[in-house]
């Protein structure tokens, strides 16, 4: 069959871009055509940036964040150590979301997933042992995993493992989201929101 997208180099580029989140074969082809048209302004700088990133990107040996140095800039910041607060998150995207929210000088621990029997993810497959080792350095550990059944099972498992460490363990509140309408919420969430009510 004739190759409709040019030579093998272009076809390979389309295939690779098609695997990126949000892109499929059609949008991958469009992106490649755009890159070819804007070779000087986009394609060459992108290739150079990718090359530099491949060389520079490291996974932080302390928290699991992605940065160009290890320990990452968050772990290396001495002001963050003073708060004594460690937030445990599922993956790097959650860490970045909390940083975007500007929650203050805290440190993080990225688990790299949650316990999931269906996916065959057990306690040894996520970064729990490293968290146990870090725990004594902190005053409080906030379990910031998702409010899903698997996320909360992981949270309880971590709490078990941290029992006896002497560190205060807390979790993010569950309840009515900003912009949420009460009549669209399920009974369990409403019940939890009522239990966790605060003074007004």
């Amino acid at each position: 069959m004739a190759n409709p997208s040019g030579g093998p180099e272009i076809e390979q580029l389309i295939q690779l871009l098609s695997r990126l989140p949000g892109l499929g074969p059609r949008s991958g082809r469009r992106a490649v055509l755009h890159l070819i048209k804007k070779k000087e302004q986009l394609m060459i700088p992108l290739a150079a940036a990718l090359d530099r990133a491949v060389e520079a990107v490291k996974v932080c040996g302390t928290c699991g964040n992605v940065d160009t140095v290890s320990p990452c800039t968050i772990c290396a910041d001495p002001r963050r150590a003073e708060s004594g607060l460690l937030i445990v998150v599922e993956d790097v995207a959650d860490l970045w979301a909390l940083e975007r929210a500007g929650i203050g000088p805290v440190r993080y621990h990225v688990l790299g997933g949650v316990l999931s029997p269906l996916d065959g993810v057990g306690p040894d497959d996520i970064s729990i042992d490293a968290l146990i080792a870090r725990a004594p350095e902190y005053r409080e550990i906030v379990i910031g995993v998702n409010a899903t059944v698997e996320g909360q099972t992981t949270a309880h498992y971590i709490t078990d493992r941290l029992a006896g460490s002497g560190v205060k363990i807390t979790r993010l509140a569950h309840g009515v989201p900003v912009g949420g309408e009460l009549d669209y919420l399920d009974e369990g969430t409403l019940s939890q929101a009522l239990k966790a009510r605060t003074s007004f």
Partner: peptide, 25 residues
């Protein structure tokens, strides 16, 4: 029937639901 939020709020019932799912699997 939405049970998940109620299960999440109670550790025993959360573990129970996970264990029953593992057994059914």
């Amino acid at each position: 029937t939405m049970r998940a939020a109620v299960l999440i709020a109670d550790r025993t019932r959360l573990y129970l639901s996970q264990m029953l799912a593992d057994h059914l699997r």
